[in-house]
Computed example of a mutant assay.
Amino acid sequence: MDQERNAYLKKKQDPSLKLFVVLSKAYRAVFDQVAKDIRGHGLNTTDFAVMELLYHQGEQALQKIGDKILLASGSITYVVDKLEKKGFVKRTPSPDDRRITYASITESGQQLLNDIFPEHWKQIEVITAGLDESEKQEAIRLLKKLGIYADDLTKRD
């Protein structure tokens, strides 16, 4: 019984679970604020993520978009369909491989992001103002380190 209690007390002192809970709650709080800002511009976070990727990185194969913004391929088709109907994104078949279709942002989509992005950036600055500049840099470093380690664990499986 003493061994079990000692093991329990030792685990209770381990900050791993608390880190996970705090990280999850912080992510949710920040994400909710960002989502609210994006919804204020008539988009949802997935639509915005696809448009932002195409805006900053140019034309992308539909299959690669899912990998880059962590979305299932079926969902990508749905999102690109919606954005294409709104005139923000266009599809282009690959000239070399019929299985590949590319998506790119249209002039209308670029204009929308040109209009949205400065205010969105300001809102992100407001949301993250709870940390000073050096704390932001430290948080970036630590979270990147944690993410790389967790990603490496996944690759080992």
Rank of each mutant, 00 (worst) to 15 (best):
D81Q: 09
S134T: 09
D151M: 15
E125F: 02
S94I: 04
W121A: 09
N6A: 14
K12V: 00
T46N: 14
G87T: 02
Y55C: 03
K11F: 03
K86P: 01
K36R: 12
I65Y: 08
D47R: 15
K10V: 06
S16V: 10
I65W: 07
I116L: 11
Q110V: 03
E107V: 08
G74D: 12
R99V: 00
T77P: 01
M1F: 04
D67K: 12
L70E: 10
F31G: 03
R39I: 01
R28L: 11
H120T: 03
A29Y: 02
D115A: 06
H120K: 00
Y78I: 12
K155C: 02
A139S: 10
R98S: 13
L9K: 01
L131H: 08
V21Y: 03
V79G: 02
R99K: 10
Q110I: 02
Q3S: 08
Y102P: 01
L62N: 05
K12S: 01
K36W: 03
P93W: 04
G130P: 02
S108T: 15
G74E: 10
Q60C: 07
T77A: 12
M1A: 10
H120P: 00
L83I: 05
L131K: 09
R99W: 01
K136L: 15
L23E: 10
Q57N: 14
K36A: 14
L113W: 06
K64N: 14
I76E: 03
L83Q: 07
P118W: 01
M51N: 02
R91D: 06
V34E: 09
H120R: 02
T101F: 04
Y55I: 06
Q110K: 15
L19T: 09
Y102A: 02
I116K: 03
K12G: 00
R99S: 14
A29H: 03
M1Q: 05
G58K: 09
R141N: 07
Q137L: 15
L43T: 03
Y27Q: 09
D37K: 11
L83C: 08
I105L: 08
E59W: 00
Q57C: 07
E107N: 13
R98G: 03
T106Q: 10
D157W: 11
V50T: 13
P15E: 05
L143S: 14
R99I: 00
K136M: 13
L54G: 04
Y27A: 12
R99P: 00
G58T: 07
K36M: 07
Y27N: 08
A129R: 09
D96S: 07
K25M: 13
F20H: 10
I127V: 10
A139P: 01
V34D: 02
N114A: 12
V22Y: 05
D32S: 14
S75H: 11
P15M: 02
L43A: 03
E107G: 15
Q3K: 10
R141M: 08
H56C: 07
L153V: 07
S104T: 09
Q33Y: 01
K85N: 11
H41W: 13
A129S: 15
I148P: 00
D81W: 04
G66I: 05
N44G: 14
G74A: 13
D96N: 08
A7R: 11
N44C: 06
Y78F: 07
K85M: 05
R141K: 15
R141P: 00
I116Q: 03
T45R: 08
R156Q: 15
Q110H: 10
A150Y: 12
L83H: 07
V80Q: 05
M1S: 12
D14C: 09
